[in-house]
């Protein structure tokens, strides 16, 4: 079997497994899984930039929140229906990503991390400052009547799960395809050795900017989908913590692998879910995971699998 066929079968298998899981697990877990699928889209978006292009952003919550508030505010204040509001969410994330990418990519390394962190922090504070419209930390609920696309009520558990799975599936296959293209391979080349990629004649600034835009738009799509499926938009989603989460998920699952973000999101969400039953200090787990991963397993789960078992893992 050729590698690309194996990889295609793997992706289809994962999607079928996720579809079957809905009918097997309890209602509590399927609700959790719907949330995880949306967050995995966020992680996959992050992975395009961090895992494949090698740019570590500490401000992705800004893109997530752009999608979330693009959708939420246009429903709440412009009276749009769900489908056009979703498009507004995507477009606002796209625009924010393009602007931030254009500015932040003038820097590199540690400066890039701080600049993205600062822009995201400014975004969070702006959401608080505009509390009249966004209701700040408290956030606002999107009414059930506004969460209907083409007659399908997305607040119903089954519709919600399969809507999340559809979004996840599209993004999953898109990234699996993207990283096989010339463009995707160039991103990896930039990650491995930017100087050499430039010497070979690639316009690395343009590639990096496109990577930020793709990454940011996917993060925004996850944010918009989250607001639509779970009916809530709040400033918490734009805090630093929500910029750290995708980094953690991707590191844990395996940076630069298509399946890593999903593994990391599932694992971390359940770890935090279980530990929060015992203590309110559940972020302790996240902190320990970050330290241990940097020290002992910088390539995550999927990285280990790729190294020990299947070298073809995409």
């Amino acid at each position: 079997m050729s590698t690309s066929l194996k990889s295609f079968l793997l992706h289809v298998f994962v999607l079928c497994l996720l579809a079957v899981l809905y009918f097997v697990v309890s209602e509590y877990h399927s609700g959790n899984l719907a949330r995880i699928l949306v967050m995995a889209v966020y992680a996959m978006g992050y992975n395009v930039l961090f895992g494949y292009t090698g740019l570590l952003s500490l401000g992705h919550a800004l893109f997530f929140a752009s999608g979330m508030y693009g959708l939420g505010l246009s429903i709440e204040h412009l009276g749009l229906s769900a489908a056009p509001a979703l498009v507004v969410g995507f477009i606002s994330a796209f625009i924010v990503a393009a602007v931030i990418g254009f500015l932040a990519l003038r820097t590199s390394g540690v400066a890039f991390m701080i600049v993205t962190l600062m822009f995201a922090q400014a975004g969070y504070l702006t959401i608080l400052l505009a509390g009249k419209y966004t209701r700040g930390d408290e956030g606002f609920v999107i009414q059930q009547g506004d969460r209907v696309i083409a007659g399908i009520d997305l607040s119903q558990a089954d519709n919600r799960y399969f809507a999340a799975l559809l979004l996840f599936g599209v993004c999953f296959l898109f990234i699996a395809w993207l990283v096989q293209t010339r463009f995707g391979k160039t991103l990896v080349a930039i990650r491995e050795n930017p100087e050499r990629a430039r010497m070979l004649g690639y316009d690395i600034q343009r590639h990096k900017l496109l990577a930020v835009i793709i990454s940011g738009t996917l993060a925004g799509a996850a944010g918009a989908a989250y607001a639509l499926l779970f009916g809530y938009a709040g400033a918490t989603f734009s805090t630093v913590q929500y910029s750290i989460y995708p980094l953690l998920w991707v590191l844990l699952g395996g940076a630069g692998t298509t399946i890593g973000p999903l593994i990391g999101t599932v694992f971390m969400t359940y770890l935090i879910d279980i530990s929060s039953e015992y203590t309110s200090a559940y972020m302790l787990i996240a902190g320990l995971a970050l330290i241990l991963l940097t020290l002992f397993a910088p390539h995550g789960f999927a990285g280990l699998i790729r190294k020990k078992l299947f070298s073809w893992l995409p």
Binding site: L247, M283, L284, G287, T294
Partner: peptide, 21 residues
């Protein structure tokens, strides 16, 4: 430099949450 930032973010949460506990 980059791995230090990730590790110190981890330290941040460990110290903060241990204090909370």
């Amino acid at each position: 430099p980059e791995r230090t930032i990730v590790a110190t973010i981890g330290l941040l949460y460990v110290i903060q949450q241990t204090t909370l506990m």
